[in-house]
Design a protein around this nucleic acid. Structure first.
Lengths: 242, 242
DNA sequence: CATAGAAAGATTGGATCCAATATACAATCT
DNA sequence: AGATTGTATATTGGATCCAATCTTTCTATG
C-alpha cells in the first residue's frame, strides 16, 4: 500500500516526463471514499428506494458484517442518516428506518413546492442550449421506464438538470434532502397508479416553459406539479393506511 | 456509576412507592445526553457565536482531552457538524471551521428570506394570546442587551416564538440550520454597526403586524428584514475583506 | 396462573490499540 | 543551491475490547 501511494505521489506532478501525453485525469486520490461513505451511500439508496421498509431495525453488527467492516464506520453512516432524517435512533436501543406521518408528508410537499418553484424561477434566465438539451434527453427517458427505481432516478435527473442552472448550491442541497425523505412513498405510489403518465405530461409542460424562457410559468407549473403529486400521494396513503 | 444507574432504574417505575406524591417531572432519563451530544452542542455553540474562528483547526485528540473523553464521541460530533455545514473535513487531514464566501452568504440570506417569509405567513393565523405575549417579552429584551451573544440568542427566541405558531417542524428545522450557518457573521456585524437598533425597530413592526393578524404584512416585513440584514452584512464584509 | 423480580443474552456507547495517510524535515544527488 | 527522496512524527480511520443499557427468559411467590 505504501508503494501505491508513492506511485500516485510521483504521478501527481505532471510537469516533467511524458506524463502529459498519457492524458491522465486529474483525479484527486484523497477523495477516495471511506468505509463510512460507502455504507452511508448504500443505506441511503436502500432507504430512498424503499428497499428497507420503514420501521425496519438497523443493527450495527449486522450491517458491519454485510460490508466486511467494523461497527465504527457503520456508526458514522448511521449518524449521518439520522442527521438527514432518514432514520431515527434511541440511545442504547438502536436505529430504525424513519417513517413519516401523513402530516409530515404533506408538510414536505408544501415545502418542496415553495422551494422548487423558486429555484426554477431563478434557473430559467440562466438556461443555455446544453442545459435544455440535457433536460430534453432526461424527459424522453420517461416513456421508456416503468421500473419505479429507474423512474425515480430519471425524475431526479430531469428536475436537477433544470435546477442546476439556478447556480444555488445551498438551495439544491436542501431540495435534495427534502426529496430524499419522501421519494420512497412517491415511488411506491407511482407504480400503483397512473401517476407516471401524468407526471410525464407535466414534465413536458415545464420543459416547454423553460425553453420559451417563461420563468413565471415554469415556476407555477413546477409548484402545481409538486402539489398535485403530494395531493394524490396523500390520498393514496389515506386509503392505504386507513 | 452503577449506584447512580440503579437509583434511576428504581425511580423510573412509579407504579409503586409514594413517588407520585413527589411530583417529579416526567423527564425521560434515557434522553440524557451522550458524550457525542455534549461535544456536538458545545462545538456548535462555539462556532455559531464565533468563538471558534473560521479556518481554525479542530484536532480530535485535543477536543477529546478538553471534554475528558475519547476520540470516538468527538468524531461523531464532528461528523454531525459537517452534515450541518459548520465544518469541513478532509480525509486524513482533519476538520476546520467552515468559512463562507460572500456569494454563499448572499445565497443563504436570499434563502432565509424566502423561507421565513412563508413561515410567518403560515404562522399568523395560528397565533394566540400566549404566543404574542411571549414574543412581546422577547422583543422587549432587545433594548437591554448589547452583548452580541445574548443579542443573537434573543433574536432567535423572538423569531422562533412567532415561527412556532406555523406548526411546521420541518420548515423550522431548515430555518434553524440556515440561521446557524450565518449567525457568526451577523453577530460580528451587529456589534460593530448600528444594525441592532435598526433590527429592533423592524422587530417591533413585525410583531405589530402579527398582533393585527395581517399575515401578508408580517411576511413582507420579515422578508425585507432579512434581505436588509443580508445586504448590510454583505456590504460590511466586502469592506472588511477587501 | 399471573406477575414481580432477577439472571442471561443481545446490543449500543465509549476506550484503547493498530493501520493508513499527511506533513515536516533531514539526507542525497545533480 | 535547488530539487528529490527517504525518514520521523503527527493525525486521522478503522478494529477490537470493555462497560452500560435494553430485552428476554426464567424463577419464585402470591
Amino acid at each position: 500500500m505504501t508503494r501505491t501511494t508513492a506511485v500516485f505521489r510521483t504521478a501527481r506532478d505532471t510537469s516533467r516526463w511524458g506524463l502529459d501525453a498519457m492524458k491522465l485525469d486529474a483525479v484527486d486520490i484523497r477523495q477516495a471514499a471511506s468505509a463510512a461513505d460507502i455504507v452511508y451511500e448504500a443505506l441511503r439508496k436502500a432507504i430512498i428506494e424503499g428497499a428497507l421498509a420503514e420501521g425496519e431495525n438497523l443493527r450495527q453488527d449486522q450491517i458491519a458484517q454485510m460490508f466486511n467492516t467494523s461497527r465504527i464506520p457503520v456508526r458514522e453512516a448511521l449518524s449521518r442518516l439520522e442527521q438527514h432524517g432518514l432514520i431515527t435512533t434511541q440511545r442504547y436501543k438502536g436505529a430504525v428506518v424513519a417513517g413519516l406521518s401523513i402530516e409530515e408528508i404533506e408538510e414536505i410537499f408544501e415545502f418542496r413546492a415553495l422551494l422548487e418553484a423558486e429555484v426554477i424561477r431563478l434557473a430559467v434566465p440562466n438556461m443555455d442550449r446544453r442545459t435544455l438539451e440535457l433536460a430534453r434527453r432526461h424527459c424522453d427517458e420517461f416513456g421508456k421506464e416503468s421500473d419505479s427505481a429507474k423512474w425515480g432516478e430519471t425524475n431526479r435527473n430531469f428536475h436537477y438538470s433544470l435546477y442546476e442552472a439556478a447556480r444555488r448550491p445551498y438551495y439544491l442541497q436542501i431540495v435534495r434532502a427534502s426529496l430524499d425523505r419522501i421519494d420512497r412513498y412517491l415511488r411506491a405510489q407511482l407504480t400503483l397508479t397512473d401517476g407516471m403518465k401524468r407526471a410525464a405530461r407535466e414534465h413536458e409542460a415545464i420543459l416547454e416553459a423553460c425553453t420559451k424562457g417563461d420563468a413565471e410559468l415554469a415556476s407555477s407549473l413546477t409548484r402545481d406539479h409538486i402539489l398535485d403529486a403530494g395531493r394524490s400521494l396523500v390520498a393514496f396513503l389515506r386509503e392505504q393506511r386507513g
